[in-house]
Amino acid sequence: MISRVVFGRGSFSQLHDVLQPKRLNVRAPFIYIVDDVFKGNAWVTSRIPLSYDDEILYISADEEPKTSQVDALVEQIILKYKEKPSGIIGIGGGTILDLAKAVAIMLTNPGSAKDYQGWDLVKNPAVYHVGVPTISGTGAEVSRTTVLTGPDKKLGINSDYTPFDQVLLDPELTKDVPKQQWFYTGMDCYIHCIESLTGTYLNAFSQSYGEKAFELCKEIFLDNKLSEKESQDKLMMASWHGGMSIAYSQVGVAHAMSYGLGYLLGTKHGVGNCIVFDHLEEFYPEGVTMFKDMKKAHNIELPQGLCKNLSDKEFNTMIDVSLGMAPLWENAIGKNWEKTITREKLRALYEKM
């Protein structure tokens, strides 16, 4: 679990006070990995507390994070600084937060990031790392994984060393998120809840968090009675609770299949989950019905025809990636999931997208 959390509107201004006691020495910088959408945005960047050799690395979040990108950032930091950084601070959405977690891990572990895609492969604790989400829904701020696309698969670095040491939750930072992105990342949280609460891995701990996140999502996306500020606050907490729920259980069919879309087509995680979930009535009938109501309430049209012109080889690549997510399928279907989740079944589902 995350050991330290700050929550509150305007709390981003406390970042200096949070970081100051963690500085190792004047030659050990804090490296800020920041979504490049904030480049030139003084309201955000002027409050990043730079001292000594601290540095901001602006990173585009237009594409899903890659293992090669992590390796390049780690090499850049190692070559530039003689001492290990005092900390890595991620400021952005799920892509940026996952990059920050992965970079923090790879600064203390040998090899390439692709070597650690899987469960509990990390041997050495990461450097101190802090997460500051600027969009709500992915749960990346609380999860024990980093979703990375590697040369062979799309799979996270899942370990006890992955979670942030400190998270700063300031709902004000989400005020300028475009509506479609707000919806897609919010639905990532909603889908976390559905997959956790209906899965075979469900337990009392994950259920308590999942149920709270589910109720918040219904309030935010269906009731339409909240002010903008209330919606921002509640969605940030829904994201946190949804992430906690899957940290103690697992996700399911939508995530397993969206990894295939993301690996082959580069489809962003949130919209990929939505595209897949829209066709999963067989697995989550009530959840999909409510999802369609949420789409209608917010006038969201999902992208169509992503798989229309794919070759057999490309379909097989997506299917291979999806079938590689065994814990997700076991949570969704049970230990004998391979008897019902066939290549033909996945091909038929992908063809609908």
Rank of each mutant, 00 (worst) to 15 (best):
F7V: 08
R9G: 12
D17E: 15
D17S: 15
L19F: 04
R27S: 14
A28L: 11
P29H: 11
Y32V: 10
Y32R: 14
W43G: 12
V44C: 10
I48S: 00
D54Q: 11
I56N: 04
I59H: 09
G90N: 03
I91G: 01
A104D: 03
Y116S: 02
W119S: 12
N124C: 15
T134G: 12
I135L: 15
G139F: 09
V142Y: 07
S143Q: 05
S143K: 02
V147P: 01
T162G: 03
D165R: 02
P171D: 08
P171H: 08
D176C: 12
W182M: 05
S206Y: 07
F214Y: 14
F214D: 11
L235V: 07
A238K: 02
G243T: 05
G252H: 00
V253W: 00
M257W: 07
V271D: 00
N273C: 04
N273T: 02
F283I: 04
G287E: 13
M290V: 10
M290H: 11
F291C: 12
D293V: 15
H298N: 09
Q304W: 11
N309Y: 11
N309M: 10
T317E: 10
V321C: 03
S322G: 09
P327L: 11
I333T: 07
E338P: 09
R347K: 15
Y350C: 04
